[in-house]
């Protein structure tokens, strides 16, 4: 379980070290892509904890969500409607839900572990 966290840290360090900057006008797309990636990541963690993890779903969902979010933002820019807000909203809500589910699962695990320790 520690490996993904390590990966996240490694990615951040790599990104900071390379000092890549994207142009201001594209930062919208990247931000929404980051949001989508976060959503997928937490969704994956939740599924893993619930033991319904499917790698294909996870990987395809990751890339598909990112692309969908980016194209939604693109469409929004060209239509003059802030469509990326829709993506932000959807991903934000799902992010909160996923984190809540993860918290509950972890809580129940913790409490059962505690009970086990108390029993023994």
């Amino acid at each position: 379980m520690w490996l993904p966290v390590m990966g996240l840290v490694i990615g951040i360090i790599l990104g900071l070290l390379t000092e890549i900057r994207i142009p201001e006008e594209y930062s919208n797309y990247l931000s929404i892509a980051v949001l989508a990636a976060f959503d997928t990541l937490f969704g994956g963690i939740r599924a893993y904890l619930q033991n319904i993890y499917d790698e294909k779903v996870f990987v395809s969902g990751f890339f598909f969500n990112i692309m969908l979010a980016a194209s939604l933002a693109f469409l929004g820019v060209h239509l003059g409607v802030d469509l990326y807000l829709a993506a932000v909203f959807a991903f934000g809500v799902r992010l909160f839900q996923n984190i809540a589910v993860i918290r509950r699962i972890l809580l129940t695990k913790w409490t059962t572990n505690k009970e086990k320790i108390e029993k023994s």
């Binding site: 490996l3 993904p4 966290v5 390590m6 990966g7 996240l8 840290v9 490694i10 990615g11 951040i12 360090i13 790599l14 990104g15 900071l16 000092e19 890549i20 900057r21 994207i22 201001e24 930062s27 990247l30 931000s31 892509a33 980051v34 990636a37 976060f38 997928t40 990541l41 994956g44 893993y48 790698e55 996870f58 990987v59 990751f62």
Partner: peptide, 19 residues
Amino acid sequence: SLTLIAILVGFMIAIQFQT
């Protein structure tokens, strides 16, 4: 796969942060 995607996410976050 989780690790790879985590690296990717971290990379994206870092770039966004820097931008």
